[in-house]
């Protein structure tokens, strides 16, 4: 007669093995019949590293942030959450002083300007968010864009804590009821995932520039930072360029340009 203790131990062992087999059986590789092709789409934009340059003085003169923000937020089905504290923002305005530390400004001889600058995800070269994500739900594409996989995100918000630029927003509630006007053919997100600016990847595949660039009246430039002939690369060498929190060493892809001979406004 088997003792109760041995019976329990044996059935536990069999149970675990059984569960393990069941679990592993689900790990079959996807059928080989599914092929996907990289059709060389001539219209799609490609780059070594996508980047953005904000021409600060031009922006101050000719850009309307409310237009830029509304275009971006509408196209991406970003909700308007009634509680301001839990707002979802892909692009925001930040006080000039908040963007660059005093030491930085004095060092490069740029006076304080009275302007609010557009800030969004910097798509850093060595993104802190990508390093800390425990599921690789946020990852860096070969073209430099830091993308989000909303299917995989577990909502731990470590990326939000790690991002030095406060670029990320979390869905504290289901966003769908709070979207003013749903843009068809672009998904929303669901509650419990983190989201952020994606440099309008969906537009890049069609050869279109990001919406903030389009709506900026020429004050925000977009292109390949690795290509010395691109608009952005040429803009960078035409004046002084600052990036936010440079001392952290994550090398943002969003640069703020101050042309020579700027005025004290």
């Amino acid at each position: 007669m088997i003792s109760r203790r041995d019976f329990l131990h044996t059935s536990l062992a069999i149970g675990c093995t059984g569960l393990g087999c069941v679990a592993l059986s689900g790990c079959s590789t996807l059928s080989a019949s599914i092929q996907t092709g990289q059709e060389k789409d001539n219209t799609a934009m490609s780059a070594g590293r996508f980047g953005l340059v904000v021409d600060v003085e031009k922006y101050k003169k000719s850009a309307s942030f409310s237009l830029i923000a509304s275009v971006c937020h509408k196209a991406h089905n970003i909700p308007r959450i009634p509680d301001d504290k839990q707002a979802i923002q892909w692009i925001r305005e930040a006080d000039y002083k908040a963007c660059f530390s005093e030491a930085e400004r004095q060092h490069v001889g740029i006076p304080s300007l009275d302007v609010k600058l557009p800030v969004m995800c910097n798509h850093c070269e060595t993104p802190a968010c990508v390093t800390v994500c425990p599921t690789q739900a946020t990852f860096k594409r070969p073209d430099g864009i830091v993308e989000m996989d909303y299917h995989r995100c577990i909502g731990c918000r470590f990326c939000m804590a790690a991002c030095p630029y406060d670029a990320r927003s979390f869905n504290f509630v289901d966003p769908k009821p709070y979207i003013d006007q749903v843009t068809p053919n672009y998904p929303t997100r669901t509650d419990g995932v983190v989201e952020k600016c994606n440099f309008c990847v969906e537009r890049l595949t069609q050869g279109l520039e990001p919406l903030c660039v389009e709506a900026s009246g020429g004050s925000i430039l977009f292109g390949d930072l690795d290509d010395p002939t691109s608009e952005v690369s040429q803009a960078i060498v035409s004046g002084t360029v600052l990036t936010r929190s440079e001392e952290l060493g994550v090398e943002p892809g969003v640069k703020y340009l101050f042309r020579e001979g700027h005025n004290n406004d």
């Binding site: 996907t36 092709g37 990289q38 059709e39 789409d41 053919n185």
Partner: peptide, 28 residues
């Protein structure tokens, strides 16, 4: 699932079906 991973994670746009068609991978 394959479409989802290919579009979001691998940056691919088109699916080559078994009869050779190139189809954009999009649920919507």
């Amino acid at each position: 699932q394959q479409w989802r991973d290919d579009v979001v994670r691998n940056g691919q746009n088109d699916f080559i079906s078994s009869n050779g068609q190139a189809i954009p991978m999009s649920l919507d």
